[in-house]
Design a protein around this nucleic acid. Structure first.
Length: 453
DNA sequence: GAATTCCCCTG
DNA sequence: CAGGTGATATTG
């Protein structure tokens, strides 16, 4: 037994009895009679006190010859889905539904995606919400539709399609049944017509919009992105659909998005994209509190979220062009790339196809880097959904490039760029900060480090 | 609602 | 270690 203070022991004992979730991850309970060790929250029968042994680290328990419990999975990493259990499985499904997953996938597919049976998923919804998943999805679509009726100039038909219905009849029926009004009645009630469509995205907690704008401003591509004092705007291509948006804060806790879309059925996809890009779903207060426990002064300004890039492809290109040069130099090349491939007006970031087919000799950088870019473009043309990890196989793409893409392109929450120059410097000032200690919020730790510079 | 799985205890 | 028990999560 490794030494544990009598005080801590007392705590562990009562925490174990109560299955206190607050102690989850802080210690492990090994049962001598079975040779198995568990987390404090394990639902299994409580072992007798005389049969247990406590460990602060799972490695110690392993070392002592115990095997991890199959129910509470003490071996899985904290913050992994397996660790968090059914509660998060449910929340994950909930989020996917809110993102419109059930509009194009079946319940069975959704269930498989979160790793449980459709039967059990239904049961969970009944338990947590008292309604079926499909019902919840329907409510969401209708709320979305209602907002559009108020805030857009789209026709009722367009609104129906934009909110995931495949027939106007069905849309009208469902709308009337739930909201007790017809869509056109709602439309009539809104005061004035808007010449430009908009939609409001809600978020929780602080959001340092200036920090985000500054970040984008420094890296904006001329003609594609425009960052002014209050807003960010850009043109884009979403699948086959061209579009444009402008985003800025409106009332507290709300971002307003003005948009144009060739195909309004892509609106939900755009919304999902923007929520990721501007990190609107992050629980910032929770994250900052956790980071504050690691290093009290690390969080200098509150509300920092991850400024995302439109796609992992774009993030990859930005990372490659940014290898070993200043931000300014990198943007120069990006501008050159975009304006050369689209001489008249830049309607979107160059696609993998466009870059792959282009002769890149006009770029002013080492030949090897051009080859890397070209090679990356070919790769993304054929396997657009490959995860950044798989890029490692490509010549000229290393961990730094990949981590940057994971951080900004995929908006992964736990990418701590400890290889970054600025971050390295900050680590001397914050000795307690490292990849382990800031997990699972490494990405936020990275940005907080940068904000000190 | 039954069956299965998994854990803990005792002999 | 085998056999028995209780409890929970998950499935068909």
């Amino acid at each position: 037994m490794v030494d544990i203070s009598p005080f801590a022991l007392k705590q562990f004992q009562s925490a174990r009895q109560a299955r206190d979730a607050r102690f989850d991850g802080q210690f492990y309970i090994a049962v001598k009679t079975t040779g198995i060790f568990c987390r404090p929250i394990c639902p299994a029968n409580l072992p007798k006190e005389e049969n247990v042994e406590y460990f602060v680290d799972k490695a110690q328990a392993l070392q002592a010859g115990y095997r991890p419990c199959l129910r509470c999975r003490p071996d899985s990493a904290p913050s992994s889905w397996a660790w968090k259990g059914v509660e998060t499985t449910f929340l994950r499904a909930l989020k996917l539904i809110e993102q419109g997953e059930l509009q194009h996938a079946t319940l069975a597919e959704l269930a498989e995606r979160v790793g449980i049976s459709d039967r059990y998923l239904r049961q969970l919804f009944q338990h947590h919400l008292g309604m079926a998943p499909k019902q919840y999805a329907l409510y969401h679509q209708l709320m979305f539709a209602k907002q559009l009726l108020h805030s857009s100039s789209m026709s009722i038909t367009e609104v129906a399609f934009a909110s995931g219905f495949n027939s106007v009849r069905r849309f009208n029926d469902a709308f009337k049944q739930v909201l007790k009004l017809t869509p056109s009645q709602v439309r009539k009630d809104t005061e004035s017509e808007h010449d430009i469509n908009h939609i409001d995205l809600a978020f929780k907690g602080p959001l340092d919009w200036q920090h985000m704008l500054d970040f984008y401003r420094l890296r904006a591509i001329e003609g594609l992105e425009l960052v002014d004092e209050l807003s960010y705007q850009r043109s884009f291509k979403l699948g086959d659909c061209n579009g444009w948006f402008k985003i800025y804060p409106s009332k507290a806790g709300t971002m307003r998005v003005e948009f144009k879309l060739d195909d309004t059925r892509q609106l939900k996809a755009l919304v999902n994209q923007l929520r990721r890009m501007f990190d609107l779903d992050a629980d910032v207060l929770h994250i900052e509190q956790q980071l504050g426990e690691v290093a009290p002064d690390l969080v200098k300004r509150s509300g920092i979220r991850i400024p995302g890039v439109w796609s992992t492809w774009e993030a990859g290109v930005r990372a490659i062009l940014g290898q070993q040069v200043s931000i300014k130099a990198a943007i120069g090349q990006l501008n050159l790339l975009a304006s050369t491939l689209q001489p008249e007006t830049i309607s979107h970031f160059p696609t993998p196809q466009e870059v792959g087919q282009a002769d890149l000799s006009f770029l002013r950088m080492p030949q090897s880097r051009k080859e890397t870019l070209s090679c990356f473009a070919q790769f993304m043309t054929h396997t657009p959904d490959a995860s950044p990890e798989q890029w490692l196989a490509l010549k000229g793409i290393g961990p730094w490039t990949i981590n940057y893409a994971r951080l900004r392109g995929a908006s992964e929450p736990n990418c701590f760029l400890d290889g970054d120059l600025v971050v390295k410097k900050m680590l001397q000032q914050f000795p307690s900060v490292n990849t382990q200690s800031v997990a699972p919020w490494g990405s936020y730790a990275t940005f907080h480090c940068w904000s000190h510079a």
